[in-house]
Amino acid sequence: MSKIKYVEHSGKEHEVDVPDGWSVMEGAVKNLIPGIDADCGGACACATCHVYVDAAFEDKIPAKSDMEETMLDFAQDLQPNSRLSCQIKVTPELNGLTVRMPKSQH
């Protein structure tokens, strides 16, 4: 289990325990945290689970795959710390991670 903090665009915070091995997207969906749509269910096929990751953790999260890189191109309000949360696997190293959500996933 690792603690992940999800911050909605409005600023509302949700801190939850997510099992290691799950994706950051699943941690949000399974805890009914709004703002991450994940239309495709985690297949890296929709770019609707876009988040901004905490700068302190950028080095601890494995680099983007080509697939994620190209899919992110279709997300709104892209920033250098943009990621697709379905592609971030929760590990003990990510305990304490904060992800922020964009204004909209579509």
Partner: peptide
């Protein structure tokens, strides 16, 4: 096939 932009 492994071509997300084409799909989207």
């Amino acid at each position: 096939v492994n071509a997300a932009p084409e799909y989207i």
